[in-house]
Nucleic acid binder design. Structure first.
Length: 270
DNA sequence: CCCGGAACCTGAAGGC
DNA sequence: TGCCTTCAGGTTCCGG
C-alpha cells in the first residue's frame, strides 16, 4: 500500500526517466482511472506537453507540465508504475499507458482499480486539503500537539487523517506508534507532552528509514523498474500478527480500528 | 457537523 | 480439488 515513503521512492525513480519528455497521448484501459476532467479534455490538454518536474505531496505524485496544468496521480491501494519501450502491455492489470516521445511508455498498473489520474490547474486541487508534510519544517511538535487535542478519537485514527498530517497510512501509523511506545487506542488528548515529542520524532524516524529502504513492497507495490522495496523487512509490528515483538518477545496483536487492521505490541505500547 | 459504515474493486487466503 | 466467503485498506460518499 503506497504511503509517503513509497510515493517518494517512485518520484525519485521516475524523475530521471520522465523530466524533459513530451507526452504524446494517454490511453486509459480502465476509464474510471481518470477522475477529471473528461477524457476528451484531458487528452487535449496533455497532448504535446513536456513533463518539467515531478513532486510529491502526501500520497500524491505530481507531474508538472509546461503551461499551468498539473497531473496528479494517486496510487490508492495497489497502483504502481512500470517504464519501458516494450510495445506489449506488462500485465492484464494495466489501467493506463502514457505514450512519451522517443517511444518510451509509462504503464500504470493497478489490480484493484482504485488509483486515480487527475488534471488540475495550478494550485486548485485536492492538495489544498492536506495537512503539513511530516518531513518538513511545517510539521512541528506544536502542530502535533494541536492534532492530538481532539477528544475521543484514537491516536491511530488521527495519524492517518490526511487533513491533519499528509502521507501517513495504515502501516506507518502502526510503526510510528510502536516506536513511540504508545497504544493505538489511546485518545489523542490523553498524550503527555513527552509522549507527543516522542511520537513526533518517531513519525520522522520511521518515515525516513522507510524512504532509505526504497519504501515497502507489500501487496502489489513495486518500483518503476519492477524491483521491490525493502522497508517491510524493517517493520516491527505491521503485518506481524502473532509473531514475537523484537524487543520484549510478546506476541504482536491485531485489532480493528475504524475498519483498519491495527498491529501493536501489548507490552511495549501503553 | 460528526461519526461510523458502505462503496469502490480484485486477488489471495481461509473454511468447508 | 473447488466453491464460497472473507479480508486487504485509501478515499469518498451517505445515512443516522
Amino acid at each position: 500500500m503506497p504511503e509517503l515513503p513509497e510515493v517518494e521512492t517512485i518520484k525519485k525513480q521516475l524523475t530521471p526517466l520522465l523530466v524533459g519528455r513530451r507526452i504524446q497521448s494517454v490511453q486509459f484501459l480502465w476509464a474510471r482511472t481518470l477522475l477529471s476532467p473528461s477524457m476528451d479534455e484531458f487528452n487535449r490538454r496533455v497532448a504535446g506537453r513536456v513533463i518539467e518536474k515531478l513532486d510529491r505531496r502526501g500520497k500524491y505524485l505530481i507531474l508538472r507540465l509546461d503551461g499551468a496544468d498539473v497531473l496528479l496521480v494517486h496510487l490508492r491501494m495497489t497502483g504502481s508504475f512500470l517504464v519501458g519501450e516494450d510495445g506489449t502491455l506488462p500485465t492484464k492489470h494495466t489501467r493506463a499507458v502514457v505514450h512519451l516521445d522517443g517511444g518510451l511508455k509509462m504503464f500504470f498498473i493497478d489490480p484493484r482499480k482504485f488509483g486515480k489520474f487527475q488534471l488540475v490547474l495550478g494550485d486548485d486541487s485536492p492538495l489544498l486539503k492536506l495537512g503539513p508534510e511530516p518531513m518538513s519544517d511545517a510539521f512541528t511538535v506544536r502542530h502535533l500537539e494541536a492534532v492530538m487535542q481532539s477528544k475521543g478519537i484514537p491516536v491511530k485514527v488521527l495519524l492517518v487523517e490526511q487533513s491533519l498530517i499528509a502521507g501517513i497510512g495504515n502501516m506507518y501509523a502502526d510503526e510510528a506508534l510502536y516506536d513511540a511506545g504508545i497504544h493505538p487506542l489511546r485518545q489523542g488528548g490523553s498524550l503527555s507532552m513527552p509522549e507527543i515529542e516522542r511520537l513526533h520524532g518517531s513519525i520522522r524516524h520511521v518515515l525516513s528509514k522507510a524512504i532509505e529502504s526504497g519504501g515497502a513492497s507489500v501487496s502489489n507495490y513495486f518500483h518503476p523498474d519492477g524491483a521491490k522495496g525493502k522497508a517491510q523487512d524493517g517493520f516491527m509490528v505491521a503485518h506481524r500478527m502473532d509473531e514475537n515483538c523484537f524487543v520484549c518477545g510478546e506476541a504482536i496483536e491485531r485489532i480493528v480500528v475504524r475498519q483498519r487492521g491495527t498491529y501493536f505490541c501489548p507490552n511495549c505500547q501503553r
